[in-house]
């Protein structure tokens, strides 16, 4: 991306400072989801399916307002509905837009054994490259948010791209464009984190949600999709958001350290055998 490279640094015979000098544009993007103002209209679901040209399919009705029980390989964005009973006995809707969180430290990318099947752009978007995917589904077990979905026909894994094709052209993701309430916003990570913090503070101080907060879990280095929750101490209520998402050690310490060390130890048998022959010689049949 040539962005920034053509920014003017010096201008001949120009009185005063160079316009724009010292301004650094933050590259990292963020999707902001305020679940407290989501009305569950599912416009984002439709926009996602339309923009990404996904084939329509029959859904499973399980007596809820949810379009289907879980996201699918061709359905990356699903509002999860939970009718939650508060301590005082009253009910409230918890509606959360379930999609890839685009972790700063993505478990899927760490788990993936195929060269080039998952990439992370400098703006933070984590994208699957299906032409390099081998269909092993390690990413599924590496993701703490249960996001990647396998298509058993193509043998490839799919998930939300954060509309990397749109973002690359300076457009916001399709779901953002469709949202009628403004509960979805798109911008830089720093800006939207500040907006989210302010909104959470507002909820705590003015709306009586003492535990309101921002979901931006540090255990995966933060995410490029952040939530404002009424009760940030119980993220599980929102369709199973993990309180402390962890990348399995299989794909961190084991893959990075134990595997190479173990392989070298096993291969040590070869030089041991060779030098045994050199130093001790063969066992000949006697005499």
């Amino acid at each position: 991306m040539p962005t920034g490279t053509l920014q003017i640094r010096a201008i001949s015979a120009h009185p005063g400072p160079v316009p724009g000098r010292g301004v650094t544009r933050e590259e990292e993007v963020c999707k902001y989801i305020d679940v407290t103002t989501c009305i569950g209209c599912k416009a984002c679901e439709v926009a996602c399916v339309e923009w990404n040209g996904m084939p329509f399919q029959e859904t499973t009705f399980d007596n809820t307002y949810q379009t289907m029980p879980s996201t699918a390989w061709n359905y990356w964005n699903l509002i999860k509905f939970n009718e939650h009973q508060r301590d005082d006995g009253t009910l409230m809707w918890l509606m959360r837009k379930d999609n890839c969180l685009h972790c700063e430290d993505p478990g899927c990318l760490r788990a993936c054994p195929a060269d080039g099947a998952i990439v992370q752009y400098s703006n933070g978007i984590v994208d699957f490259q299906q032409e390099n995917c081998i269909g092993c589904e390690y990413c599924v077990s590496g993701c703490p948010f249960n996001i990647p979905r396998f298509n058993s026909e193509t043998k490839k894994v799919y998930k939300c791209t954060l509309c990397s094709d749109r973002v690359g052209q300076g457009l916001e993701p399709a779901c953002i464009k469709a949202c009628p309430t403004g509960c979805l916003k798109f911008g830089t990570k720093a800006d939207l984190r500040a907006v989210a913090d302010a909104r959470a503070q507002q909820l705590r101080e003015q709306s009586g949600f003492a535990n309101a907060g921002v979901y931006d879990p540090p255990s995966v280095g933060g995410t490029h999709v952040i939530y404002v929750l009424h009760d940030a101490t119980k993220p599980e209520l929102y369709g199973g958001l993990p309180a402390n998402p962890m990348i399995p050690p299989t794909y961190t310490l084991w893959k990075r350290v134990a595997r190479p060390v173990g392989l070298l130890l096993a291969l040590l048998a070869a030089p041991v055998a060779f030098y045994h022959y050199v130093m001790e010689g063969p066992k000949e049949p006697q005499p």
């Binding site: 589904e137 390690y138 077990s141 590496g142 084991w254 134990a258 595997r259 173990g262 040590l268 048998a269």
Partner: peptide
């Protein structure tokens, strides 16, 4: 499920390393 898978990966690796050395 994913938990069974990431535990299995480790055990599968250990067995493979034992087999390779042997």
């Amino acid at each position: 499920g994913r938990i069974t898978v990431y535990i299995s990966v480790v055990l599968h690796d250990i067995a493979a390393l034992v087999m390779l050395g042997g």
